[in-house]
Amino acid sequence: MRPAKPAMLIDLTRCIGCEACVWACKESNGLPRETGVTKLSATTWSALERHEGIPVRRQCMHCLEPACASVCPVGALAKSPEGPVTYDADRCIGCRYCMVGCPFGVPKYEWESALPRVKKCLFCYQRQAEGRQPACAEACPTGATLFGDRDELLKEAERRMAAEPGRYVPRVYGQHEAGGTSMLYLSGVPFEKLGFKTELANESYPGMSWQILEKLPNVVSVGGVLLAGIWWITGRRDTLEQARRGEISLAEAMERKPPLVALKSNLKPDDRSQEL
């Protein structure tokens, strides 16, 4: 029953803009009913935007490699093994890096609350765990939102594009964007006209940070050895300089460990502090 890689195929050419998905989402997640909802917010996790008269569904893309989960310093947002990107409100510190990091601008914040949380579509992971499909997919009257396994839905998308080439632009949005997402879109008009970010990188976004973070152990070990080495060499240099000036004998200099710190006054009570 449960797909191996849960995903949704959203065929915009079949959407009639009835907003059943919007209201099903609100009902299923106990969100307040508001009128005139056209964009995502802390209380609207599935929204219906209209671009040039065409209704376009918006919700979390549930990236295969989500930027939000990778930037979260406490792991409040996480990619569950089952697929949905979930949120643990008890961990969240409210840094909002997820909102900055998400290339799709999905996570929203409870700005008016004194104890705010991040809000976004959770792909109805609770319903999925019970073997049901997400509320929005179940509510869709035209089959514009189809829930299933990602690989199978990609095949279905290819089939539809091949069967009616004039009906679709030849692109499945979400197949490669940001390393691939669980939401796959088909459209009859170019995606850039429908408010989609069409110039996102196809590589994994978490990888961009990781290629820097993975170097840190090297920076620490090489840097630590380098600094300690410089400290030892400069100390040795000073000792030999003393020997050269005849202040200590050469034999003494050979035996002597490098002086621990260069300055004396900073670390022991000197005449200066006596006066205070």
Partner: peptide
Amino acid sequence: RIWHPLVMWNPHSVM
């Protein structure tokens, strides 16, 4: 909850 990152780890996060 400023102390959370010290206990709840995510080494993939720059923050």
